[in-house]
């Protein structure tokens, strides 16, 4: 069953949903820059970004009533946004590793 967002929660729902994507991108950005530059503060910023994403997901879990079957969506977001940048980083390293691939 679907329980719609309540009127009082409209703004926070829109805002938190947007923040999920933006903080997900910031997490990916800082994560990649940390692995590229090895500057510790970037790593902290990456996890702060993910923490913001985590909180935002919790907020929409409350406001959008994401319980029961909808828990799948919450887990998919938390796991997906956490692991995808890591997976892509490993793919980047792997695809660029072979000799002769660096430049045309």
């Amino acid at each position: 069953m679907l329980q719609p967002v309540e009127l009082k929660d409209f703004f926070i729902t829109f805002f938190a949903s947007g923040i999920i994507i933006v903080s997900g991108a910031l997490y990916a950005l800082f994560y990649a820059f940390y692995h590229l530059k090895k500057i510790a503060v970037l790593n902290y910023l990456a996890y702060v970004s993910y923490f913001v994403l985590f909180i935002s997901v919790l907020i929409i879990t409350q406001t959008m009533h994401l319980d029961k079957i909808w828990t799948i969506v919450v887990i998919a977001m938390l796991v997906g946004y956490f692991l995808a940048p890591r997976g892509i980083w490993h793919l980047c390293v792997a695809t660029h590793k072979e000799k002769g691939y660096e430049q045309k």
């Binding site: 997900g24 950005l29 909808w70 940048p85 980047c92 660096e102």
Partner: peptide, 28 residues
Amino acid sequence: TVGGLFSALEPIPLVAMVVHAVYDSGKH
């Protein structure tokens, strides 16, 4: 549920591609 779940997953490739952009700009 199907639409909700996959809609939540749809932006993940976009977000993940940020990593690749950073990697390429840094390495090349």
